[in-house]
Write a protein that binds this DNA or RNA. Structure first.
Lengths: 159, 159
DNA sequence: TACATTTGCGTAACTAGTTACATAAAAACA
DNA sequence: TGTTTTTATGTAACTAGTTACGCAAATGTA
């Protein structure tokens, strides 16, 4: 007993389930960071690793490579800067751009962080079996190719 | 070129991808509803279908069967009530409870809505191949059984 | 070179969920 | 029966994203 109603309903609740999954992952992310004494917030690792490779990046470069909206990126960068993980400077060649790079603090903490992220990834692997990742990837590509809206419009016009 | 950086990074961005997927599904949901002239908001269908079966339900009954937090449910119910889809009444046997049921309007619109939802589900089926749903279900169950936090704690204690 | 367009950034307001807290009614219990 | 605990609801504040809009700098063009 105590079945999951939404699971039993097929596709009618799939969006809600995906949200539920995200909420759960975010929440465990916070808990795990706390347990491991990692003083960072969600998605910071993406930016730290990106800047480790690319050294200096502007807001829109980051937002387009992560596929986040630029206001989302700005919010994250601001917080990271407040906590001294990042340094921001005006691009001398283009006064509109702000270039972000890792601070000394970030660089010195990174090795320890990377070890902990590796551990987390190891544990995640037990949950995200390859079938899920493959199916997710397939779905993402399909949605990219032909948005659901298009198919619906096709149907409407046919009618 | 123009590859998806996050996809290429394995598990480190999986939470962000799940969120991205949800954002996309929500957005196409709104678009599709508009295109089909369905004047309802996300998740209303879950409640309409639930109340069609169960006639009268209290807030916490709904929230526990949908596995939404009760404040989330209250917000949805309020909006639905404002748009005359629902009727709310005090439970005479328990003055704390408010029982919600479908309005005449909702009942008369439901057949048309259900047809449109069926169409949407038909189109969704082309995207959410069974592998995705199975993998999602497996992941949900696994997270339910042993939360990731537990595994992390195990590791910490072992060390 | 002057003007129009595009690009990059920033802020504001919105969205769909959450947790935390408050209160009143009901239920359990001494 | 009087008191404590639990349950149901409601509200407030937070979260992590989005779109919409405005402005200034850079770029393209007549």
């Amino acid at each position: 007993m105590e079945k999951d109603y939404i699971k039993s309903q097929g596709l009618i609740g799939v969006t809600a389930r995906v949200r539920r999954l995200n909420d759960r992952l975010m929440s465990t992310g916070r808990n795990v960071y706390k347990a491991l004494n990692l003083d960072i917030e969600p998605n910071w690792h993406l930016i730290l690793l990106l800047l480790e490779q690319n050294k200096k990046m502007a807001v829109t470069e980051i937002s387009s490579t992560l596929k986040f909206s630029h206001p989302a990126v700005i919010k994250i960068l601001k917080k990271m800067q407040e906590k001294d993980f990042l340094i921001g400077e005006k691009d001398p060649k283009d006064q509109r751009k702000q270039l972000f790079s890792l601070s000394e603090k970030a660089i010195s903490l990174l090795p320890e962080y990377k070890e902990k992220w590796k551990l987390i990834e190891e544990i995640q692997k037990e949950y995200f079996v390859s079938e899920f990742l493959k199916a997710l990837e397939k779905l993402e590509s399909k949605l990219e190719e032909t948005p659901i809206e298009e198919k619906v419009n096709e149907f409407i016009n046919k009618k």
